[in-house]
Amino acid sequence: MAETDYVVLDPRFKPLIRFSASVQRLYHGCAWAEGPVYVPAYRQLIWSDVVNDRMLRYDEMSGNVGIFRQPAQYSNGNTLDFQGRLVTCQHGTRSVTRTEFDGAITVLAATHAGKPLNSPNDVVARSDGTIWFTDPTYGIDSDYEGHKATSEQQGAHVYRVEPDGDVVAVAADFVQPNGLAFSPDESLLYVSDTGLSHQSDGPRHIRRFAVGRNNSLSGGEIFAQCTEGVFDGFRVDREGRLWASARDGIHCYDPNGALIGKILVPERTANLAFGGPKRNILYICATTSLFCVRVAVNG
Score class of each variant (00 low, 15 high):
His205Leu: 13
Thr150Lys: 12
Glu186Met: 03
Pro177Ile: 01
Tyr253Trp: 08
Ser151Thr: 14
Leu259Gln: 04
Glu186Gly: 00
Leu16Asn: 09
Asp201Pro: 03
Trp47Ala: 05
Ser75Cys: 03
Gly92Met: 02
Asn214Leu: 05
Lys115Pro: 06
Gly299Val: 01
Asp102Thr: 07
Gly77Glu: 13
His251Arg: 08
Pro15Glu: 11
Arg279Phe: 15
Tyr253Met: 08
Ser48Tyr: 10
Cys285Ser: 10
Arg12Glu: 08
Phe182Thr: 02
Gly63Leu: 06
Arg160Phe: 07
Gly229Asp: 00
Val170His: 03
Lys262Cys: 02
Trp32Lys: 07
Thr134Ser: 10
Glu100Gln: 06
Ala210Cys: 10
Trp47Cys: 09
Asp164Glu: 13
Asp141Trp: 10
Phe234Arg: 01
Leu9Pro: 10
Val175Leu: 13
Phe223Asn: 06
Gly240Ile: 02
Leu45Cys: 04
Ala109Phe: 06
Ile131Met: 08
Pro177Tyr: 07
Met61Gly: 03
Phe291Gln: 00
Gly249Cys: 01
Asp201Trp: 08
Gly202Val: 10
Gly103Cys: 09
Arg204Met: 03
Glu186Pro: 00
Pro203Glu: 05
Thr227Trp: 01
Thr79Leu: 14
Val96His: 03
Thr130Asp: 05
Asn256Glu: 12
Gln90Glu: 15
Thr227Pro: 01
Asp248Glu: 15
Thr4Glu: 00
Lys278Met: 08
Arg54Ile: 13
Ser183His: 06
Leu80Arg: 00
Ala113Pro: 05
Ala224Cys: 09
Phe209Asp: 12
Val161Asn: 02
Tyr38Ala: 04
Val96Phe: 04
Val51Leu: 15
Thr227Met: 00
Val161Glu: 05
Ser183Met: 09
Gly139Gln: 14
Thr97Gln: 09
Gly212Gln: 01
Ala172Thr: 05
Lys14Ser: 15
Ala33Tyr: 05
Ser187His: 13
Met55Glu: 11
Leu117Lys: 08
Asn118Lys: 04
Val96Ser: 05
Arg54His: 13
Ser151Pro: 12
Ser183Cys: 12
Gln199Tyr: 11
Val37Ser: 10
Val8Glu: 02
Asn178Lys: 12
His198Val: 15
Gln90Asn: 15
Arg69Thr: 08
Thr93Ile: 01
Ser289Glu: 00
Tyr190Pro: 11
Asn280Tyr: 09
Phe133Leu: 08
Leu196Pro: 08
Gly257Ile: 04
Phe234Glu: 05
Thr287Val: 12
Asp5Thr: 01
Leu9Cys: 09
Thr137Arg: 07
Ser216Pro: 05
Phe174Ile: 10
Asp143Lys: 12
Val37Ala: 13
Asn118Met: 09
Val39Glu: 15
Asn256His: 06
Leu196Asp: 09
Gly66Tyr: 07
Tyr159Gln: 06
Asn76Thr: 08
Ala41Gln: 14
Asn78His: 08
Cys292Met: 15
Glu239Leu: 10
Glu34His: 07
Leu180Arg: 08
Val51Lys: 15
His28Tyr: 15
Asp232Cys: 03
Ala21Met: 12
Gly219Pro: 00
Asn76Asp: 13
Pro36Ala: 13
Arg85Thr: 03
Ile17Cys: 00
Cys292Ile: 04
Ala210Val: 11
Gly129Leu: 10
Lys14His: 13
Asp102Gly: 10
Asp102Cys: 12
Arg94Asp: 14
Trp47Tyr: 09
Leu188Met: 06
Tyr58Ala: 11
